[in-house]
Every structure is written in structure tokens, then in C-alpha cells.
Design a protein around this nucleic acid. Structure first.
Lengths: 226, 226
DNA sequence: CCGTTACCTTGACTTATGTCAAAAAAAGAT
DNA sequence: ATCTTTTTTTGACATAAGTCAAGGTAACGG
């Protein structure tokens, strides 16, 4: 079980900070545990602090009035989330739930803002985190509005392959139902598209293991569709 | 014609800062003019600084491989844009174009980062700006994936009415074609929906002037669809 | 004022994706 | 292991929204 300070130095938000500052940050962090399926916050809650994932997996999502869910992010170890209310003073714009048993660090708003005020590097790191998030949203909006589901899936598989460092196989770390929600569709549609892509010999699906048989074909599908 | 320093004090990014700091900020700002339709930056460009709108209207948008456009934001007076590359070090994730003749202030990256490093309030203001932007994207993703076009339009009309301070009429400040792109659809579809909403006596459309005949009905359409 | 261009609307048609229902497969619990 | 629950798949069908094409209207420059 990792120590708090080790996590801190590994998370981009705190990278490059001198050890004495990490210790200050450590001082204000509160460890919290969440079981699988447990809610961390819901839309409309006041945000009196934000979180960093130590271990586990957290989803941030919206739900429509008819109950359909759209996942905005899935965060893993080292990633901060829930910062928006810290800086806007407004409530959380989305819901958050632990997908597995998770260990988080909670940073109370006031203490953290004080820290940032005295620490320009920390401020710049946080600006970089938020900017990166903005960048990701840009891509997500582009995908939702400009690409069809097969292209989104292909793009996601390529992204996963890169993230996982392998070239021709990926392992889903979420269920296919959750993946559907992340891609802005429903399980039935996703299932059909997996079937079609398999029939076209682009991929081979075995449970959560997916072989990328034709990466170039996937790339083309992701970029140009059809 | 407004002076630079007046603009600075009116933009949320710089609000609450003491005058001597505003003067420092003014020092590094470079005024730039853009004609209607002129490109400010395109996706992939290096961002060596960001902009604040003094007057005019700027669109930030993505284009699909088939040429369909999705507008991400439309920024007006007092709003900053193009900050993402400043803090991520990566290129612009989207394109930017002046919708009308516009006057902008350009803040070179290095000078601005130096300013932020010495000025925690400025850092916190920038964090607030980015967080607010993140919040808006959250809503946009929710709309694109969880609501149908009529609901998105209804929600947008309500938003416009609030923004413009009137209760029962709004004036579009962009063409209907651009509105379609902002809502993630195409002009034909938008036109049909305007016609349908008019037939249902929810609104009355006269060019760019729209009367909200039944605000409660619009609200319901925005929230629960149909 | 007139012609050119851009914008908006309407119609007929296609298609991607969602809905509903049920079966099959996989995962988890007792 | 067997039962139960959850996840995934498949089929038949419905529909929102896109495409293509054409006509109308409004805006603009000379």
C-alpha cells in the first residue's frame, strides 16, 4: 500500500514541486475509501474540495431525464477530479461514482486555495490539468457531433492501444455497457458494431480482450468513417 | 473607442486586480484587428499566446473530414480564448475565426506566464475562467448526447433570453446556419424545427428576432423533450 | 436599383441509431 | 457446483436527423 507522499509525487498536478511543498500538500490531504458502485458526489452538490485517485477507477457522468447515462471521464490512479467547483464556487456539474473499490485523497477547498496562492508552480500545474481536460472535452464534442459510433469506437481502441503501450491488442478496463455510455451510445448498438468490425476482420473480440487485427483499417475508420 | 485598460478591468479574467497590476498586464497586451471571416488560428497551430475580445465576435470550431462544422464557443467582448496551448504546451485543438470585424488583445505566452507566477489572484482568476469553460463543455456534451435537437434549441433560446435580460423575446446574434452548427445539427434540420415550434405556438420567428410565446412550454421541451 | 451571392426553407428520400423484447452468456453468490 | 443476477447479444421495428435537390428570400456591392 503506497504512502500518500509517493502518490503526490506521481500525480501530474504535483509533479516538479520541491519536497517541502509536497509535505505541505500532504498535510491537507484526507484519505477516503469508496466501495464499488458508491457515489462520491452528485450533480448540484456543493464542492468543498476535490479528489485525487490513489487507486481504483472513478466515473464522472451525466444522466438524462429518461435515464440514459453519458460518461464524461473515467479517472484512474494519479488523476485529480472534481476541481471545477473549487474555482467557480458553483456546485458540481455532474455525478461521480466509484467503479471499483477505490482509495482517494480529498483536498479541502480553502486549504488548497491557500496553498495555490502561495505557490505559483502549483497554480501553473493546476492550469495545465484544467487545460488538458478542456482539450479532451474538445475531442469528445468533436466525436459526438462529427463522427458516427463506429469511428468513435475505432478511435477509442486506438487510444487504448497507445495508452496500454501495446500495438495490436487492448484490454477494456470497463464493461461494454459502460463503454457504450462513454462513447455516447447504448449497449445494443455497441454490440452490433463490435460484431460488424469483427466480421470485417478489423478486430477480434474475446470478452474484454480485443485484438487489433487491422490497425491501419481502424485508423482509417476513425478518421474518415465508414 | 474603449481604452485597453478599461477593457481589462471589465473582463472577468482581470477583475478584482489592483490598478498597478492592470497596468502591468496592459503593458504586455498587443492589439490586433481581424476582418469578418478572417482566421485567427487553426487546429494544430502552436499557441504562443491567447486573446481577449475587446469588441466583435469570435467562433471556435471543429470541422469533420466531410466538412461538417461544430461550433464549440462563440466569444464576445471581455471573454478570453485560446488559453489551452498556453498551459498545456500543445497546439490549438480547434480553429478560430472572426465572425465580424473584431478587435482583440493578444497576450504573449511567456510574458503572461511570468505575470501569473508573480500574481496569485491572476492565477486564481484564470483557474476560474477555465473551470467555467469546463462546466459549459459539460453542458454541451450532455446536450449533444442526451437531448434531441428540439430540446437543444429550446434550451438555447431560454439561455439567450436570460443572457439578454428579456423574458419573452430574443435576438440571434449569429446566422441560423451558424446556430445549427452550434447546436450540433445542420441548417435544414434547424429550419424544420423552427417551423414546428412555430406551428406549436411555442415561438414566433421573424428573421433573427424570436418571440417566446410559451416560455413554460419551451422549458418543458428543453428538460423533458418530446 | 439591379444583379449577384449568400442564406433559408421545403420536399422526397435514406440511414444510423434508438426502442422493445427475448435469449444467450458470463459473472457472482450461496 | 448450482442458482441468481448481471451483462451481452440478436432480431424486428420505429424514428430522428442527415442527404440531395430545388426554389424562395434576404442581403450586398457596384
Amino acid at each position: 500500500m503506497k504512502k500518500k507522499i509517493d502518490i503526490l509525487s506521481e500525480t501530474p498536478l504535483f509533479s516538479g514541486l520541491p519536497e517541502n511543498q509536497l509535505r505541505e500538500i500532504e498535510q491537507i490531504a484526507i484519505e477516503k475509501l469508496f466501495r464499488k458502485g458508491e457515489t462520491i458526489f452528485i450533480e448540484g452538490d456543493d464542492g468543498n474540495g476535490f479528489y485525487v485517485v490513489v487507486e481504483g477507477r472513478i466515473k464522472i457522468y451525466k444522466v438524462s431525464s429518461e435515464g440514459k447515462e453519458q460518461i464524461l471521464h473515467i479517472f484512474g490512479a494519479g488523476e485529480p477530479f472534481g476541481e471545477v467547483p473549487v474555482f467557480t464556487g458553483k456546485p458540481f456539474p455532474a455525478n461521480s461514482e466509484s467503479l471499483v473499490k477505490s482509495r482517494l485523497l480529498f483536498f479541502p477547498r480553502k486549504a488548497f486555495v491557500d496553498l495555490i496562492s502561495e505557490n505559483p508552480s502549483l497554480a501553473l500545474n493546476m492550469l495545465a490539468v484544467l487545460s488538458t481536460r478542456l482539450r479532451r472535452f474538445t475531442v469528445q464534442i468533436e466525436n459526438l457531433s462529427l463522427k458516427e459510433v463506429p469511428s468513435r469506437l475505432a478511435a477509442y481502441l486506438i487510444y487504448l492501444a497507445e495508452e496500454q503501450g501495446r500495438k495490436d491488442s487492448v484490454k477494456l478496463h470497463i464493461s461494454k455497457g459502460q463503454l457504450a455510455s462513454l462513447l455516447g451510445t447504448i449497449p445494443e448498438t455497441l454490440s452490433r458494431i463490435f460484431a460488424k468490425m469483427s466480421a470485417q476482420n478489423l478486430i477480434q473480440v474475446t470478452g474484454r480482450d480485443i485484438s487489433l487485427i487491422d490497425p491501419a483499417g481502424l485508423e482509417d475508420l476513425a478518421e474518415h468513417g465508414k
